[in-house]
Structures are given as C-alpha cells and as structure tokens.
C-alpha cells in the first residue's frame, strides 16, 4: 500500500523521517508530562507555604513575591 510520506526528503532518506518523527514524539511526550505535572498541586503547595516576601535570603528558590 502506498502511504504518503510526510518528512522524508532529506539526505538520510528514511532516517530523516525517523529522526524528525522521533524528536517530535519525544517532545509531545514531554508536553504531556509537563501538562500532567503542572496540574498537580506540588508547586502550589510550595507557594502556599511561602511567606511571599522573603527576598532577603541568598537562596534563589526563596525569591518570591506573591503578586496580588
């Protein structure tokens, strides 16, 4: 069956397509993971636990300002 090639016009022939699609698949998986991770409340709880005005500390992770 003749199927339409989407991304196979490069110097590597079929590998061109494999590399392109693999990178695309990896990034789409990363998108999904990011989406799932961002939805859970871990960072939200971190923000809640923070006082909101602790910029005097040298630890960068504590440099937050709760915007109102």
């Amino acid at each position: 069956m003749q199927y339409q090639v989407i991304l196979a016009h490069g110097a590597l022939g079929i590998w061109d397509e494999v590399i392109f699609l693999s990178i695309g698949a990896i990034f789409l998986v990363m998108m999904g993971i990011s989406w799932v991770r961002s939805r859970n409340s871990v960072l939200d709880e971190e923000i809640e636990a923070d006082d909101g005005h602790s910029t005097n500390t040298t630890d960068p992770s504590d440099e937050r300002f709760r915007l109102e």
Binding site: F27, M31, S34, R39
Partner: peptide, 24 residues
C-alpha cells in the same frame, strides 16, 4: 482552572519544536 498552567507549560515544548523547524 488548574489546567491553565498545565497547558501553558506544555506549549513551551511545542514552541521549542517550532523553533527546530527554522533550524532544519
């Protein structure tokens, strides 16, 4: 509303691929 941040974070990855299309 919790999904908003998830969609925005995920979009950073998609845009990284868009930039890759310029390199190609």
């Amino acid at each position: 509303p919790e999904s908003v941040r998830g969609f925005w974070t995920a979009n950073a990855w998609a845009m990284a691929l868009v930039m890759g299309s310029f390199s190609a």
